[in-house]
Design a protein around this nucleic acid. Structure first.
Length: 951
RNA sequence: GGGCGAGUGGCGGAAUUGGUAGACGCUGCAGACUUAAAAUCUGUUGACCUUAAAAGUCGUGAGGGUUCAAGUCCCUCCUCGCCCACCA
């Protein structure tokens, strides 16, 4: 018998795929299209390790599965080649980055081929190829024309080691994402893409994406939309006024001082002579302060400017301070400080002894305010210790949502009470979604007799439905457990030192209270609910021309210039006045010039600045100087998914017909870039759609975010930890690519991290060997004819497996699909003892091999050929199951007595309850527990379980 | 501080809608083959109790609840992981 030898069959089939161009995709097909891609890799010199290759394996399984299902599958491959590692290596060794890159690509391609990936190699692209970056430059030009690429002087993150600026997304905990050194702020003139123009659409369309919730949440947080108002404060003795952004304009009567960021443009202008020296010293000091210092030490610091502003609500003079807790890049870089209702302002006011005015008091029992919102976040309180009555408070947590107050009935859960309250207050029927986190907030509030009360709140999330309102009766609801709190327990908590402090602070009216409540100390607005006052105050200020509604985003524009050599040159030149001009399209690409020294210096300019002649360019008869910055690598990777559809087009970036045929990507797989890359790709797609270059607005339909394979020690694989496992080593050690692939998909669900386990690889190898041996035995055996029952059993297992594996693959449950194949093989190895029936077994084994082919394509192709199949298993179609074979004559029913499993009885499928019960009562063990007792009730789930309730 | 996840044997993990917890694999143990070892094959492998066999008790981070029935639903608590973090 021939032995399973991966080193023999794997090269054979890899050659076959190559020669037959088995995976080349074409638009000329009437099959439904399916575009699958992984996030393309940066080809490093050390090659791929087994942690990297997992997302390629996932895409490969999907590719081969969908091919077999009869889809027209496009699965391309490419390389994200611009970037620092190649350049740093060039600096060290003097090798050209282009040469290094070429070598690394060859290494990556070799690895991909030896892993047996089903790739359409005719679509191989690389972002540093002039034929590719020519179009990256073309796209830059179009963005420039639309005003979406602009140059701005501003303070930016600067990595002193890599000597380049970085985007916000590339600064991780105050450190450079590439080299890990601390970054600093540097004032420079830099290129930006105006991603904020698309912030609203980028945010709102997240909801409709079939992406992991985690990624969607991260994107939402990153965009960070907040609704509020922009208010103007006159500076005493100056013409100018200072604009501030706030989400709580309702607290304006409590604004007792202003704070500007040290970098804010107005600072120097308004500072009085007395304070100038101190202010300048502070500005200098905070510029030097690294991000890490700021994060580690959040103690408030600041300096008085000597200037005063006028609070437009109270007409009082309020001091203007500068402090680095106000960020220059957000809003106007200035805030109105309301210490009574903002914790940070409170801390600052305490430290520098600034006045604190309370303008909102917490809600009082019985107070009601308006509502009518689609989504509420509601905090339900348990009950007041005084009278034992439950109380429900709902306060605004997002944007302009209004609070309601009411009672929780005994026997209601917080969620139910909230549902009922919302109905009573709004007429909307609300559905309880879930509790928000396990944290319970404790706080004090004054009731309508102005007595201090203690309460516990629990946030719940409700969703208002569009159903016709109908009365919601609490009695009808199942009684759930309320958060009972006895009087004693509540009193114990009220006297707890932590809470007493809170009580005192409230009684003194000074603790910052950031929630909704009722207006006080606010002139004509007193007594109004804060949410209502918020809108009225903005209108009031708007009438005077000093306030307006405003939406702000946490997200900043995308900084795209880099002072490095190995990137896509920005197609811009400057005239004698320093105005930027586009390099005309017919002069693209702007090729990266050859240089001797790649090293950036401290000039803040890239190595391109030292190229002499290259810098000169004539546009429309005028001599100009070229831009020496290159583009962020993320720009290059923001459109490659489109280029794959039309990779060799030399006349345009892509042919819209081809892109509209293949894109958007049906499934995109990756394990990194949760925010930056995925947000940029979405941004550009929307821009291209607005330009009429394509007919869709979201680039990726489904996103799969896979976990890593870690080292045997459970740590993330890295060269420095010495726990790297090279896939080629695993293949060459005799296991082969099929074992490696199957193993990586078998060890854990694809989205989970899993440690590399050498013994586990052996187990998968044994499985594949047993498959091979079984087929050899079948081919060599003398065939027999099987009896009816044996035939039926085999067919049943065959169809059961097809059903299981197919549905597992459809829901991306690769590990259980492999487990199902293993289980089936174990069964077949026992069943073979009855002899091999030729026609039955050959169909069965061919189906088995087809199902194995997404995981172990070489072995599957080889066995498929041995079994007489023509061509590749993927081309022969995916096996289908027939429910008729799955029908069982008899089923085993679990019999429980009082909920405990006592026996198993075998009855005819779909037997009625009486029959099953009779059979169950025949059972000795059931008798032991049921004898002499009365059967109160039986619960019967057909074909599954019978539960006898006896007493 | 905010947000999002997750806790199941010695290990990786399974249980798709509340319905027989621990599929599949690894490890360990026992046996077969072998002069021997490796490889391979067979059996076994949650804990406890008892054993001739059958059965029984406990068991999915902890505690409570709902239910005929809970890994799954509800409440409280604990632990871990990831992301964001002075965003007004």
């Amino acid at each position: 018998m021939k032995r399973y030898n991966p080193s023999e069959i794997e090269p054979k089939w890899q050659n076959y795929w190559q020669q037959h161009q088995s995976f080349e995709a074409s638009e000329k097909s009437d099959k439904p299209k399916m575009y699958l891609a992984e996030m393309f890799p940066y080809p490093s010199s050390s090659g791929l390790h087994v942690g990297h290759v997992r997302n390629f394996m996932i895409v490969d399984v999907l590719t081969r599965f969908n091919l077999a299902l009869g889809h027209n599958v496009m699965r391309p491959f490419g390389y994200d080649t611009f970037g620092l590692p190649a350049e740093n290596y060039a600096i060290k060794t003097g090798t050209k980055p282009a040469d290094i890159t070429k070598e690394n690509i060859a290494g990556f391609r070799n690895q991909a081929e030896r892993l047996g990936f089903a790739i359409d190699w005719s679509r191989e692209i690389s972002t540093s190829d002039p034929e590719y970056y020519r179009w990256t430059q073309w796209i830059f030009a179009r963005l420039f024309e639309r005003g979406l690429a602009y140059k701005k002087q501003s303070a930016q993150w600067w990595c002193p080691f890599d000597k380049t600026v970085l985007a916000n997304e590339q600064v991780e905990n105050g450190r450079c994402w590439r080299c890990g050194n601390e970054v600093e702020k540097k004032h420079m003139s830099q290129w930006f893409f105006k991603i904020t123009e698309y912030a609203d659409e980028l945010l709102s369309e997240i909801d409709g994406l079939d992406w992991p919730e985690k990624i969607k949440t991260m994107q939402r947080n990153w965009i960070g939309r907040s609704v509020g108002a922009e208010l103007e404060f006159k500076v005493e003795g100056e013409k100018n006024s200072i604009k501030v952004f706030t989400t709580r304009p309702d607290t304006i009567f409590g604004a007792t001082f202003l704070v500007l960021a040290p970098e804010q443009a107005n600072v120097v202008k308004i500072t009085t002579d007395d304070q100038k020296a101190e202010v300048l010293r502070y500005i200098e000091k905070s510029a030097k302060k690294s991000e890490i210092e700021r994060q580690e030490n959040k103690d408030k610091t600041g300096v008085f400017t000597g200037a005063y502003a006028i609070n437009p609500a109270t007409n009082q003079k309020i001091p203007i301070w500068i402090a680095d807790y106000v960020l220059s890049g957000y809003g106007e870089g200035a805030i109105m400080a309301v210490p009574a209702h903002d914790e940070r302002d409170y801390e600052f006011a305490e430290k520098f002894d600034l006045p604190i005015t309370q303008v909102i008091r917490p809600l009082v029992a019985g107070e009601k305010v308006d509502n009518a919102v689609k989504r509420h976040v509601i905090n339900a309180i348990t009950r007041r210790p005084s009278d034992g009555k439950f109380l429900l408070v709902k306060w605004q947590k997002f944007d302009w949502i209004s609070p309601v107050i009411g009672g929780i009935e005994d026997g209601e859960t917080a969620g139910e009470a909230a549902e009922r309250e919302v109905f009573e207050e709004t007429g909307y029927k609300a559905k309880f979604v879930r509790n928000l986190g396990g944290e319970v907030e404790k706080y004090f509030f004054a009731d309508n007799k102005n007595e201090w009360r203690y309460a516990i709140s629990q946030p719940v999330l409700l969703e208002l439905t569009d159903e016709t309102p109908e009365s919601v009766s609490a009695e009808e609801k199942a009684i759930q457990t309320p958060l009972w709190l006895t009087l004693d327990e509540a009193l114990e908590q009220i006297t707890h030192p932590d809470n007493r402090l809170g009580l005192e602070l409230y009684q003194n009216g000074v603790k910052s209270f950031g929630l909704e409540g009722t207006m006080m100390n606010s002139g004509q607005f007193d007594g109004l609910p804060s949410a209502e006052a918020r809108e009225k105050i903005v209108k009031w200020l708007a009438k005077q021309g000093i306030g307006r509604e405003k939406v702000n985003y946490r997200m900043r524009d995308w900084l795209i210039s880099r002072q490095r050599y190995w990137g896509c040159p920005i197609p811009i030149a400057y005239d004698s006045k320093g105005q930027p001009h586009l390099i005309p399209d017919d002069q693209l690409p702007v090729l990266l010039p050859e240089v001797d020294d790649y090293k950036p210096d401290d000039s803040g300019r890239s190595a391109l600045a030292k190229t002499g002649d290259w810098l000169k360019v004539t546009i429309d008869g005028e001599e100009m100087t070229r831009e020496t910055d290159t583009l962020d690598g993320y720009a290059c990777s923001s459109w490659y998914l489109l280029r794959y559809a039309d990779p060799h087009n030399s006349g345009q970036a892509w042919d819209r017909k081809k892109v509209d045929f293949w894109n958007p990507v049906d499934v995109y797989v990756g394990a990194d870039h949760a925010v930056a890359h995925l947000l940029y790709v979405r941004f550009w797609t929307k821009v291209f759609a607005d330009m009429g270059l394509l007919g869709f607005r979201e680039p990726v339909k489904k996103l799969l975010y896979n976990g890593y394979v870690n080292g045997p020690d459970g740590q993330k694989m890295s060269k420095s930890k010495g726990n790297v496992v090279n896939p080629l080593d695993v293949i060459d050690s005799g296991y082969g690519a099929d074992t490696l692939r199957t193993y990586e998909l078998f060890i854990a669900p694809f989205e989970m991290d899993a440690p590399w386990d050498t013994a586990g690889v052996g187990g998968v190898y044994r499985f594949l060997t047993r498959v091979w041996n079984l087929v050899q035995e079948f081919l060599e055996a003398e065939k027999t004819t099987l009896s009816g029952q044996d035939r039926q059993d085999l067919q049943k297992i065959q169809h059961k497996t097809i059903k299981k594996v197919t549905s597992d693959l459809r829901r991306q449950s690769f590990n259980t699909a492999v487990a199902a194949l293993m289980e089936t093989l174990n069964y077949l190895n026992k069943a073979k003892k009855a002899g091999f029936d030729d026609d039955l077994w050959s169909v069965l084994l061919i189906d088995f091999v087809k199902m194995l082919s997404p995981f172990a394509p070489h072995l599957a192709a080889e066995l498929f050929e041995q079994l007489g199949g023509a061509g590749l298993p993927e081309a022969a179609g995916w096996p289908e199951w027939d429910e008729q074979y799955l029908a069982e004559d008899n089923v085993k029913i679990a019999v429980q007595v009082n909920g405990k499993l006592r026996a198993e009885v075998e009855v005819a499928t779909d037997a009625d309850e009486a029959t099953v019960q009779a059979a169950a009562l025949q059972n000795d063990n059931v008798q032991t527990f049921a004898k002499g007792k009365k059967i109160l009730k039986t619960i019967y789930v057909p074909n599954r379980i019978l539960n006898l309730v006896v007493k």
